[in-house]
Write a protein that binds this DNA or RNA. Structure first.
Lengths: 122, 122
DNA sequence: CGTATTAACTTGTGTTTTGCAAGTTATACT
DNA sequence: AGTATAACTTGCAAAACACAAGTTAATACG
């Protein structure tokens, strides 16, 4: 049996807002999911698998649960079963847009030397 | 023998700037180190251990090497031995400030409910 | 100058988290 | 009713993390 992570179980490393943001989103996949939802508006489970980063399904499922329990994403129709019931960002999730914009801008300006193929758009 | 991670060995998940930024900084500790350096200007190895998040020394050493190999941080005096030779941000590292500001702002606005003790400053 | 301190790591070990492949369940279409 | 397939789960190997302890070498002190 796996240890279930949810927003109740979380222990915060400190009272610092930056550290707290990283407690919640400081991994390689959560913000990729948010990015996909910003770009596409809504996305079903299997559509997330189409992104070039190729997230594996167990991690995708775990992160979708996690982001849902944090209130950053939700099913488009909260009543229906999950098949073909896409995910979308809540207001909290949408508010991450400036963070992603700054991160993308930084990468374009400072990672090009290491990664010449990096593209110029968000 | 441990697998040494450095900027040569890195494989990028995609050409997306956001994904690329996360390839490099998408973990729980790298941006904490950057935050400490933004706040304090310079920091010695052991001073990093004073921060409330209590990074362990093996991870600290690994991240300092990593951030150095990426050119985000450097020793204050590149000639001297490392004892009492503090680290500081390079221009690339300093350019992360807006990213941290947006992340901190987001946390203050959207994590207060889950984490009431979160503070209001950077 | 020799010894003691201590900053800056390194190593060892156990525990989580990740990554990949394969399997399961249930909805919806025919 | 039967089949296809979206949405997960499970199992296991590999990597990352956490914690404690040990090592090395530069500086402070007598």
């Amino acid at each position: 049996m796996e240890k279930e992570l949810d927003s109740e179980t979380l222990d915060w490393r400190s009272v610092c807002p930056i550290a707290s943001g990283l407690d919640v989103l400081g991994d390689k996949w959560s913000l990729i999911i948010v990015r996909d939802l910003i770009q596409h508006g809504t996305r079903t489970y299997s559509e997330f698998g189409d992104s070039p980063e190729r997230i594996s399904t167990n991690i995708l499922a775990a992160r979708l649960k996690w982001l849902t329990s944090l209130g950053l994403i939700e099913h488009v129709d909260p009543e229906r079963a999950s098949r073909n019931n896409a995910y979308r960002l809540t207001a909290s999730g949408l508010a991450l847009r400036p963070v992603l914009e700054e991160l993308g801008r930084w990468s374009q300006n400072h990672l090009k030397a290491l990664h010449p193929d990096i593209v110029d758009i968000l």
